[in-house]
Design a protein around this nucleic acid. Structure first.
Lengths: 128, 128
DNA sequence: CGGCATCCGATCAGATACTG
DNA sequence: CAGTATCTGATCGGATGCCG
């Protein structure tokens, strides 16, 4: 089949995920990473502390939670606010930019959660 | 902050990404994998052959393309049609279920492509 | 409490060679 | 053309220990 001509919106895009070296791939990687998705969805509920997030997200290690939070912070999606007290107190929240992506990510996450039975059924058919 | 009570839709969900052993995590993994995203978006344009996909998606190896296609096929998102001719001819397309996820995935991909400048700006601020 | 540094095994992913 | 098989390096990701 033919390759359709690029639409107007496509021409105006500043990133192209199909280009091998495009930095948009890094952003996608952070956002769709194993824990990135859950962080973005979890923070939709409002500000959370590090330990809150860790408790909420089953199975995440301290290391990966910290690392993923740093990625998302560097990309401008997550805001990190540290209170200089003992014991330390750090709060994470979504930036305006983060609110936008998290909506897209949450829409995908919701779809998957809601349609899981159909997917499981498809897998079982294949086994039979 | 308080944990809000589960909404009605949340209660009706059949999957829960925050649960460590929930199979929905595997589905998310396939769909948001490095090449899974690109495959789902690419197939929105219609049926594609293996080589078409490979050419279109910069940087993917034969192995990973084949493997990712198999994941998506097993999950019921992608349809594989093989014509028994020489040389072989195999066509990939989205199933109705796949059309649905691909919309969510494409919405995310589009957002990232369109907002890449903002993200890059955020990164640069941090460096300064 | 919220990290960081190090070590280490598991998994991912590319290159290459081979096949129907 | 559309894969599979194998090998190998790269990266992911968890466990542990330490620190402000």
């Amino acid at each position: 089949m033919e390759t359709r001509a690029p639409s107007l919106t496509e021409q105006m895009r500043n990133g192209n995920l199909f280009a091998e070296q495009c930095p948009s791939r890094d952003v996608l990687k952070h956002v769709t990473s194993r824990w990135g998705v859950l962080i973005l969805v979890a923070l939709q509920g409002g500000t959370h502390r590090f330990s809150d997030l860790r408790r909420k997200m089953g199975g995440v290690s301290e290391k990966m939670l910290a690392q993923t939070l740093q990625w998302l912070e560097a990309d401008g999606f997550v805001n990190r606010k540290s209170y200089p007290v003992v014991p330390p107190h750090v709060e994470y929240s979504l930036t305006p930019l983060g609110e936008e992506v998290s909506e897209k990510v949450a829409a995908l996450a919701d779809w998957i959660e809601g349609n899981l039975p159909k997917v499981m059924a498809s897998r079982n058919e294949r086994d039979a």
